[in-house]
Design a protein around this nucleic acid. Structure first.
Lengths: 201, 201
DNA sequence: CGGTAGTATGTGAGCGTTTACTTGCGGGGA
DNA sequence: TCCCCGCAAGTAAACGCTCACATACTACCG
């Protein structure tokens, strides 16, 4: 009988669980997704492997929690932006792209590369989850682009994919050929100009 | 004493070696790079694992040969295009992008996703090789863009990265949300219009 | 023409290591 | 007392890779 699920005294309600996911996030950022080992997570958290299984039933469960975390960081703010009424569609797309690019730079290119690796994972549940995330992201972009009205060079779905391209390209170059100066230009003025060009009508 | 190295009667001079790489290519396309196992390669070729080691000293050697193959398919034609004198810079960039997109679609998004996975690989030699490939690709694009002369919205390096973005975005959407109709539009008219917009001055 | 040696290519068993995951046991706070 | 949480020590399976041995073919020699 679970008496009261939400009686956690301190703000760190589920400290170990959250800490495990946070440390896993760091590990994936450093060493990638496919190379992730339970032993590394345990080491990073400062416990043994067995202890991890007190909080998660399997490695896959940790990875799913990781995608949840990524969704919270990437998609949730985008959805909030989309819902605002004080911005034009172009302003919204500008800010969405800025946010995505900042996330890519801050997390050392994680989102896009994570998607790549997960798309080959053996864990079907994980692939489905990632598919859902990218669908939602593109759908949100498409929704904003749809508010532009007809007449542009590209239709909303095309715009959504095109706007996915820049973060992807930045992630790839950043990961293999780090260049802070170029990254700064790409995430700032270049992104703005690109959005404006794509939306021009 | 090897008497005559090049006395192979039929055109399949190094049949097994080439076949191993070709089958590995297929496997990576299907199951990704990180999940590749020597046992799978052997099975696909139709021999045992030991036989593979008659032709390659290690798994890493097979992977390096795979990158060579990718380079031949992706980079070599791009270099040829860059060297032509009967095309304008914009025409060259148009054709380079078309070729890249066709490669992405034909190989089920392999190049970009392979880059992602390799960027996390433990094989340092492999990462260096991939870094070299992407550097050469971006450098070639940058060289063509440099022929445009000053005055555009973006500088040559920015153009190179922007043109990397579309194949990357197409690869991601294609892998996770296959949509032949959208892919057709993206690789055709959308790509053309995008290049024209980016180069407009 | 037959015998012999060499080379290229394969098999099948198994090596040591690493993987995700399990189990038995115990300590410490409510 | 109970139960959450952790540890140490396991498990079977899978990993890259090696090795002794077999087979087919070619080249050379007398």
């Amino acid at each position: 009988m679970t008496k009261d699920i939400f009686q956690h005294p301190d703000p760190e309600s589920l400290p170990r669980r959250d800490e495990i996911v946070a440390r896993t996030f760091e590990l994936v950022r450093e060493r990638g997704f496919a190379g992730l080992r339970m032993r590394q997570i345990a080491e990073k958290v400062g416990v043994t492997e067995g202890a991890l299984y007190r909080h998660f039933p399997s490695k896959e469960a940790i990875l799913l929690a990781l995608v949840d975390r990524m969704e919270a960081r990437l998609l949730a703010p985008v959805r909030q932006l989309a819902a605002r009424t004080d911005l034009s569609a172009e302003e919204k797309l500008q800010q969405v792209l800025q946010h995505h690019l900042r996330t890519v730079v801050a997390s050392q290119s994680l989102p896009i590369l994570l998607i790549s690796e997960v798309s080959f994972s053996e864990h079907e549940a994980l692939r489905a989850r990632m598919r859902q995330l990218i669908t939602a992201y593109l759908g949100t972009l498409e929704g904003i682009a749809g508010q532009l009205g007809p007449g542009g060079e590209f239709d909303p779905r095309e715009i959504a994919v095109l706007l996915l391209g820049l973060p992807a390209a930045v992630a790839i170059t950043q990961r293999l050929l780090p260049d802070a100066e170029l990254a700064g230009r790409l995430t700032g003025p270049v992104a703005s100009k690109l959005v404006h060009l794509i939306l021009s009508r």
